[in-house]
Design a protein around this nucleic acid. Structure first.
Lengths: 322, 322
DNA sequence: CTGAAAGCGCTAACAC
DNA sequence: GTGTTAGCGCTTTCAG
């Protein structure tokens, strides 16, 4: 691997001049620069990132740490982040699991977006002492920490109230992972809306945000002595599972039971029938907002303006037509 | 940020001893090590990755470079890779777009898995002079380059032949991006199977592997003067779009038209009706295989055994019952 | 405009 | 077992 020394030698200049030329520092003579560039090109020179990062104390990398790589929500957010990060001439670096903590601690990234409620809070707080962090869908306080949280409870609250007004009365909840922040908030909104109407939740089914877990919940719902007339699912994937279980049992949706989800993942997917009532989040925009905010924070390294909250919109579809 | 010097000073030892202790080099006195570790812990010391990488010329990072972050195929492969990489105590680092090339050139990763047929081949070949690279679903020759390609053409060939035997006669093809390697191979297999049976492809519809593009193709198919009785789609997502378009026009699948896809992405998703005939690839296993192979190559830095080809399996489902 | 040289934080000979 | 030290490849003062 050629180093900057090789470039300097072959171009007949010192390393510092080579460095200036390579980095487009204006004070170098255009002819010299040209020569250096040509040599670099010819020997296929590329700066060593580790050396540069060590010296400059910056990596130009934005870390994105996620819980897993599956699901439409994750994909859309990531695409949004990716777009902005590239436009700002930085690199995106996605990781998952415990490598993520390592990368933060060892400073492989200049700033981070964390979308993983299981991520060690201590590590985040520590890292954020020196670098900005945007935390998606988790509340966390601290210097340089910017949580971006949607109104989970409020949105669910509104949806449920609307459903009550439509005449639904016997509600059950299909839950995401118990610890998940957004799941807890959604459950809270659900319970509160019912309470305000003098209703009680008939049952709580434990799921994990996947379609199969929704399907399993659906099976249980079918076997209930008194079936509910409305199933609220903490996300859309589980709602699909529930609907499938009901279909197999020939229980009509929405005639017999209304079903709703959260996220809006399938709004554009016409093959979902009946179309699913949901709370739609523009995840792509969310990713863009988060990344823009983060990079602004990094570059101004001071106060950042703008609100970071993703907007949710209730979308009433066929699955709750009553 | 504390450095190893700080640790050494506070522990009353030299930096080399501190380094040995922190890296579990056996020849250091257990008591000394303990003291060093405690100091490190107490001041929240973490080694600087850039410095370590610069010195050791290794990063412990496996790069995974993808075309985009969307879709089930991508997710599953990534989960498979992630599992193996973690088990082998390395870090996974996913990136997309032109950052990817940069990361390769600047040596931010020790080895790479590339799943992006638009990736600059030159860059790969250059990088692979010193580090192993596994290329998914693209043929590429060169030192240290290990392509992992499924039998796209053969599998499609078999499926189409089977469909011909079932009595289908008027075939159309819904294509992925024209340049995509796997798409081209699949088309080749499709054409050949038809040719061998003395049949001709009635039409070729340009798509891009997304459901909406399949839907658009479906609309066109409906308006054909002589409709096909079989639609082969280069992947499952497009097949869903086609089926939806047909459903909206009340054209029965499989009664009037058979539909098949590729990937097996929806085999476990019961809400797809009719269930889709497809060529199933175990992407999770594929990711695992690729990662295992790559890390072996990296560590033995020599010959690596084992076959790297993902296995495909034809799955006849409801969408082609004739 | 260009060069000499210090030093980022770490590892690994080598010497004791 | 532990300490001294060179040096990884680069940027950036500081001199000239």
């Amino acid at each position: 691997m050629p180093t900057i020394k090789d470039v300097a030698r072959k171009a007949g200049v010192s390393v510092s001049t080579a460095s200036y030329a390579l980095n487009n520092v204006p004070l170098v003579n255009p002819e010299t620069r040209k020569r250096v560039m040509e040599v670099a090109e010819s020997i296929n020179y590329h700066p060593n990132a580790s050396a540069r990062n060590l010296k400059t104390k910056r990596t130009n990398n934005i870390g994105v740490f996620v819980y897993g790589f599956s699901g439409p929500v994750f994909s859309e957010i990531l695409e949004g982040i990716n777009k902005v990060v590239h436009a700002r001439h930085m690199n995106i670096l996605v990781s998952s699991g415990k490598s993520s903590s390592m990368m933060l601690k060892e400073k492989q990234v200049d700033a981070a977006i964390i979308f993983d409620s299981s991520f060690d809070k201590q590590v985040i707080v520590q890292y954020a002492k020196n670098s900005p962090v945007v935390v998606l869908d988790t509340f966390l306080k601290g210097k340089n920490i910017y949580p971006s949280v949607m109104d989970n409870d409020l949105l669910v609250h509104q949806l449920i109230r609307q459903m009550i007004n439509q005449g639904y009365q016997r509600f059950v909840y299909v839950s995401g992972p118990q610890e998940a922040f957004n799941n807890k908030e959604r459950y809270k909104g659900y319970l509160q809306a019912l309470a305000e109407a003098g209703l009680k939740s008939q049952q709580y089914f434990q799921g994990d945000f996947t379609t199969p877990s929704g399907y399993a919940a659906g099976k249980q719902i079918i076997s209930m002595k008194t079936r509910p007339d409305f199933v609220f699912c903490a996300n859309d994937e589980m709602a699909l599972g529930v609907m499938e279980a009901l279909r197999e049992a020939s229980i009509g949706v929405p005639e017999a039971i209304g079903v709703a989800g959260f996220d809006g993942s399938y709004l554009n997917n016409p093959y979902i029938r009946p179309s699913l009532t949901t709370i739609s989040i523009d995840h792509y925009a969310w990713g863009q907002t988060a990344a823009t905010f983060l990079i602004d924070a990094l570059q101004q390294s001071g106060e950042v303006k703008g609100v970071l909250k993703p907007i949710g919109k209730i979308m009433i579809k066929e699955s709750t037509q009553r």
